[in-house]
Design a protein around this nucleic acid. Structure first.
Length: 455
DNA sequence: TTAGGGTTAG
């Protein structure tokens, strides 16, 4: 009879009687907050709380267990923490999404008279970038120059990201130009900077330049440039990048492959998207959603629904993105029953709290002729942006509820929401469906259609 | 111990 493998043995805490034992245990990682507290107690009991190496492991364990407040508590109790501990704290707070705390801690560190090193800056600059705190970032930049870290590629790239994120692409480009060493991360960062400014062509130009300089793009770079192609509808460049990936034998991870799927669907090559999708070794919910949504927006609802059936057969749980694609396909087909069935796969609150998902459900009900159900969803939705209102106005208009859609239009105005072209298209649609010619004329008198670009 | 908020929606 085969021996039953015993579970991995951890020494009971009581046996952790020496520093090496405690260190080994801390390096294994904690399984619970309770255990973390126990290990801390052992540290105190053994009089090892002055050992900053062990304390650092304890801090990291606290962050890894999702207990940043506990890490902060331990840290505050430490006399004269060394730079390593400060860095661990700033890094941990950034990873735990406590950006303001990370910046405050950095400020405390400076106040205590400690000099940051090349590791400190990327952590704290990331926090500034996420907070869009350019003022603090600029002060840190001044200190970077003073302390002589401006040549460090990590520090420089972090600064570049800060400026790009805060809308200062000019400064980001200047830093990039003066970098003595550029690597794939710096190139990807500047490409992303151009993309976030909507300068997609220039982002692709930077990518071409990077290749001319023999840079080997990685999956992060490829995802960015494929996204730029998607947004531009630039099939030619997208295909070229795909060929480049194949020629160089670059492994297509799930992110790159999904970006290819998205690029092909957005550029009108659904078949190529499907070929990439079928060739994917690993597919996640994003890949499935991209392909299903791609079929829907390409006017192939039947294919979208067939793929959704396959997704379920593959035991892949749909998310909000999947559901939008599926509901949109049902709306196009007028498949009310199916739409109702699939909507049951989600919690109703998901529809009520997510305006995109809610709109997809309203649109499906309205296009399938069930205005009453569309109305119920609309009334219950917590967050209604203009697109939600437009979907309901159009839905009512299409089913000859012109008066009600006019009522909604009046409410929009009363609430101070600025209608857009789609709102007026919905309203005009209700005029044509209900013969409210005179109301349509009045509306034309009231609103400046020319400005909206409708006529 | 460090830098890229890596892909999908109405």
């Amino acid at each position: 009879m085969a021996a039953i493998p015993l579970p991995r043995q951890y020494p009971p805490p009581a046996l952790l009687s020496t520093a090496p034992e405690l260190k080994r245990r801390l390096l294994q990682g904690c399984r619970s907050f309770q255990e973390l507290k126990h290990l801390h107690a052992r540290l105190l009991r053994l009089g090892l709380d002055g050992d900053q190496y062990l304390l650092n492991l304890l801090l990291r364990s606290s962050f890894d267990s999702g207990q940043p407040a506990h890490a902060l508590l331990l840290f505050r109790r430490t006399d004269h923490p060394n730079l390593y501990l400060w860095n661990t704290m700033v890094r941990g707070l950034v990873a735990a999404d406590h950006m303001a705390d990370a910046v405050h801690l950095y400020t405390d560190m400076r106040r205590e008279g400690l000099s940051p090193n090349n590791f400190t800056f990327p952590f704290v600059l990331k926090a500034c970038a996420r907070l869009f705190d350019l003022d603090t970032g600029v002060k840190i930049h001044a200190y970077v120059l003073k302390a002589g870290f401006e040549l460090d590629v990590f520090v420089k790239t972090s600064l570049l990201c800060l400026y790009a994120k805060c809308g200062r692409l000019d400064e980001a480009q200047r830093l990039f130009d003066e970098m003595p060493v550029r690597n794939v991360v710096s190139w990807t960062a500047i490409i992303s900077g151009y993309m976030s400014e909507g300068r997609l062509e220039e982002a692709l130009d930077m990518f071409r330049r990077s290749l001319e300089m023999d840079l080997k793009p990685d999956s992060f770079t490829l995802v960015r440039v494929l996204t730029a192609c998607s947004q531009l509808g630039d099939l030619k460049t997208g295909e070229w990048i795909h060929q480049y990936i194949e020629d160089k034998g670059i492994e297509k991870n799930v992110f790159v492959a999904t970006s290819l799927v998205d690029m092909y669907t957005k550029c009108g090559s659904v078949d190529k998207a499907r070929a990439v999708f079928d060739g994917m070794v690993e597919k996640d919910v994003v890949s499935w959603s991209a392909m299903i949504g791609g079929y829907s927006t390409s006017g192939l609802p039947q294919e979208a629904l067939e793929l959704f059936v396959q997704m379920q057969a593959a035991n892949m749980r749909p998310d909000c993105f999947t559901m939008v694609g599926v509901l949109s396909a049902c709306a196009r087909l007028g498949a009310l029953e199916l739409g109702q069935q699939v909507s049951c796969l989600m919690d109703m609150n998901d529809f009520l709290l997510n305006p995109v998902l809610g709109t997809a459900l309203i649109d499906m009900y309205a296009k399938c002729g069930s205005t009453a159900q569309a109305w119920t969803v609309f009334k219950r939705m917590m967050e209604k942006d203009l697109i939600v209102w437009n979907a309901m106005i159009t839905g009512l208009a299409m089913t000859s509820h012109g008066k009600v859609s006019f009522g909604l239009f009046a409410q929009i105005e009363k609430m101070g929401i600025q209608p857009d072209g789609n709102t007026f298209i919905g309203i005009l649609c209700s005029c044509t469906h209900t013969g409210l010619v005179e109301d349509g004329r009045k509306l034309k008198g009231l609103c400046s259609f020319g400005q909206l670009g409708i006529f």
